[in-house]
Structure formats: C-alpha cells, structure tokens
C-alpha cells in the first residue's frame, strides 16, 4: 500500500530566487485577483505558461491576462478538456507544474483525473499560503448560491443499493453553507468532518471551527465530537490522503461502508489530498467525490503571501 507521506513536499522562498534548475516545460495556473497567484506566476520558469480563467470568477471580457484560456463551459470536464486540446495537446514527456492556489475545486479535482488519463505520472503542484483571510471567519468565498450538489466528473464511482451504512467525509472549510448543503444532500449518511490542523495560520483553526459550527444541525453531530471529527494539516495533501485512509479503515473495521462520499471543501492542498486518495484507492469502489456547485466565487479572499509549497504528486495509472 502506497505511503503518501513519502511524496515530496518542500517550501519555496517567497521573495528570494528559487533554486537554479527548477523549471518545468508546462506551467498552469488559475487567474484570480489575488497577489499571491500573480506572484508565483511571475516567479515560475517554464517552457510555456498558461492562465486559466474560470467563468465563476466573473472577470469581464478584456480583464483577463493576454493569452489566457477563457473557457465558458461550467462543466469541469468540458472546460479542462477544451483547455487541454486548445493549449497543451499530447504531453509526451514534458514536465508539468500546476499552481493550485486559484483553482476552483471541481476543476482541480477533474484535472487530476485528466492527467491520469493522459498518462501523466508525476507533476508538481504549487500552493501559496495567505497571511490571512480577508475578513477572518466572516470571509465569504463563494456567493453561497449553490446551484446543485453533485459528483465531480470522473469521480462518480460505482454505487451500492444498500445504503444502510453510507458515510460522508467532509473536508470542513470556512464556507459553512457549503458544508450544510452537502450534509443535507447526503443527509442519510453518517458524517465525519476533517478540520485543518495545524491550520495555515494559528488563528485559522478557531475561525474554521466557528464557521463549521453553524452547519451543525445539518451535519447532525456536535462540532468537535471526537467520534466524527478528525484533523489533517491544512497545507499537506499527503497527510490528508493518509488521514482519509485511516478514517475509512477505522469506520469500516466494524461494519463495511456501503457507499462512501468525499467532499473536499477546505484548503486546496486538502482538496488535492482528497483527489489523490480517491484515484489511488477508491476509484473502482462505491465511492464518489461530491461538491456543492456555486454560481460564482469571489476573485480575492485573502491578504498577503506567507509561504509557497511545492508538492510532487505521483499520479496513479488508470
């Protein structure tokens, strides 16, 4: 069984030069109004650099960077496939780096599946931590208008008509309404939440719990209930994947899980961890990755640049 934690995770300097020789053939980043996204885009050395502009951010025509891929499809699979056919093509042996910081979660999740389908076996993911969220625990990330809760394309799994021991594992972020929507959609599931601890900044865990508490009635458990609350570092996809494995192993040791739903609503590294875990261990099982899809997301929700992480992701073969 793969040990996720041996995958490479390292820090890159925020201001000073990055190591010589650190370059990729292809660099992909999602465009937002945040400085931390542009900062990394400028620092990266790559054969080709690609901005993705997601329709949910609502950038008006002419406000996107020159040469950016501005897709109109709101379906993650359609968008990513169109970008790939338009801008990348056959990836061959080219090295790839993806800044996951500005990505809207379902696009990032599907992209991982797409890379696996295209035979990519390894890529570097970059993530920039903010100094703080713009309005601390009151920060609004999406417009909170959820259009539907559904499975992410390529992460739909198989399904078991026996639903007597279904589980939903939520990566609990700041968007308590999203937590509530997912929990309501899968209301018959037993629910477990993973909180980001250590959090990105010292005060963020407390803010995270405060927000998650608001969704308590939908989740059906008291926030902090030890039997349904787990923790994984907010900036570590690999420990997140390991934590998911541990949770699933623990809860299925008694009665087997009938259907498992994963919903990563927290930080992008944790989202990456959910997707890695799914593709590595749960792809052909009664497991799916679900998400509350919103109409719009705020273009900027953070202040400052704190740390830049580089994760080398080993992509499972499909």
């Amino acid at each position: 069984m793969i040990d996720y934690t041996i995958m490479y995770k390292g820090e890159l300097p925020v201001e000073s030069e990055w190591p010589q020789g650190l370059r990729w053939d292809v660099f992909i980043s999602a465009y937002t109004a945040a400085d931390r996204v542009r900062h990394v885009y400028d620092k990266v050395v790559a054969g080709s650099k690609h901005w993705l502009v997601f329709p949910e951010y609502g950038f008006p025509p002419g406000k996107s960077p020159a040469g950016a891929f501005v897709g109109s499809a709101r379906e993650e699979a359609e968008y990513v496939k169109a970008f790939w056919e338009n801008s990348i093509g056959d990836v061959g042996t080219r090295t790839i780096s993806i800044d996951i910081t500005g990505f809207i979660r379902p696009y990032l999740i599907f992209l991982l599946r797409w890379l696996a389908e295209r035979g990519v076996r390894r890529f570097d993911a970059l993530y920039t931590e903010p100094d703080r969220y713009a309005n601390r625990e009151q920060t609004v990330f999406s417009d909170e208008v959820v259009t539907e809760v559904r499975q992410v394309a390529g992460f739909e799994g198989t399904h078991n008509p026996d639903t007597s021991n279904d589980y939903l594992i939520i990566g609990a972020g700041y968007d308590d309404r999203l937590i509530a929507q997912v929990a309501e959609d899968k209301k018959f599931c037993k629910k477990i939440q993973i909180f980001g601890l250590p959090s990105l900044r010292a005060d963020m865990y407390q803010q995270n719990v405060l927000r998650a508490h608001r969704a308590e009635e939908s989740v059906g458990r008291e926030t902090g209930d030890p039997s349904s609350s787990y923790f994984a570092p907010a900036n570590d996809p690999f420990v997140t994947a390991s934590t998911l494995r541990e949770i699933v192993s623990r809860v299925s040791s008694g009665k087997p899980i009938t259907n498992l739903y994963l919903s990563p609503l927290a930080t992008k590294p944790q989202v990456l961890g959910f997707a890695i875990y799914y593709l590595t261990e749960r792809r052909n099982s009664a497991t799916s990755l679900i998400f509350p899809f919103c109409e719009a997301y705020n273009q900027e929700t953070t202040k400052g640049v704190s740390r830049i992480w580089r994760y080398t992701v080993e992509v499972p073969s499909i």
Partner: peptide, 9 residues
C-alpha cells in the same frame, strides 16, 4: 432513498 441514486450524474 433517491439521494442514493446520485441522480445528478
């Protein structure tokens, strides 16, 4: 339970 069908797919 209809939600178990994941009808959105």
């Amino acid at each position: 339970r209809c939600s178990g069908l994941n009808a959105g797919r």
